[in-house]
């Protein structure tokens, strides 16, 4: 465990802070995409409130695709990944730590950002609370499942669009449950069921994704 914390966690954190501007870009993208909706659809508060949850989640998924790409890219191209694999540590554990760091540096800011987004799209306080909860439960799921596809496409020169093609259909259930939770909150209905389902998907991903990521990275090394 110590080796993982000292060798991977601290390293990735140090790298993330050194590449702050690269991390900020997906967030800026998210903010701009959300700005486009009132401009394209009209700023009526009722309309915005109606489309708000969906818009925020779609923008989050799209920006996550941009942020995700850098998860293993540098390590693959500079050979660090080879060194991890020969370090004697379990690749699944290394992958889990890397995904954790990635979530901390690219999705946690998004969650912190979300009050601003809620304000832009005229969400009520109840809706905002629901949105926050779905983001907290749902974005780790994006990171974990996304990392599998990133592991598979990391060795390809033009993996960016392919990554989106692979991941968007897989993220659809999350989008449905998350937006429906926020919609229920808007109607003062309980939304524990949706949160429970997202939580269940997250548990499933936490249990299986690290192994799938490890296998994917091994395939990419071959």
């Amino acid at each position: 465990m110590n080796t993982l914390i000292n060798g991977i966690f601290k390293r990735d954190m140090a790298l993330a802070f050194r590449q702050r501007s690269e991390l900020a870009q997906p967030l800026m993208f998210l903010l701009m995409v959300i700005t486009l909706f009132p401009l394209g659809i009209g700023p009526g508060p009722v309309t915005l409130q109606k489309i708000g949850p969906g818009v925020i989640w779609i923008a989050a998924i799209l920006s996550s695709l941009l942020a995700m790409e850098r998860l293993f890219r540098d390590d693959f191209w500079d050979g660090s990944l080879e060194q991890y694999m020969l370090s004697g540590q379990s690749v699944a554990a290394i992958a889990a730590i890397k995904v954790l760091v990635h979530w901390l540096v690219s999705f946690l800011p998004l969650v912190l950002f979300s009050p601003l987004l809620a304000l832009f799209l005229n969400l009520t306080v109840d809706m905002y609370v629901a949105l926050m909860l779905t983001l907290v439960l749902g974005t780790p799921l994006l990171s974990l499942v996304g990392a599998i596809a990133v592991g598979l496409t990391v060795g390809l020169q033009r993996g960016g669009v392919l990554l989106a093609l692979l991941l968007i259909p897989v993220f659809i259930p999350l989008l449905i449950f998350a937006t429906s939770a926020v919609d229920s909150a808007a109607l003062q209905l309980p939304y524990r069921a949706q949160l429970a389902i997202i939580g269940a998907m997250l548990m499933l991903a936490m249990a299986t994704a690290p192994f799938a990521i490890a296998y994917a990275l091994k395939v990419s090394q071959n």
């Binding site: 991977i8 500079d78 050979g79 060194q83 370090s87």
Partner: peptide, 29 residues
Amino acid sequence: QLIYIGHKAGINGALTAMENLRFWCAQHG
């Protein structure tokens, strides 16, 4: 008991030489 140094150096350009070595040693125990 193995050290492998391949075509790709396994050195991250954004980190300093000392950091690279420190993290590498930590990974390899």
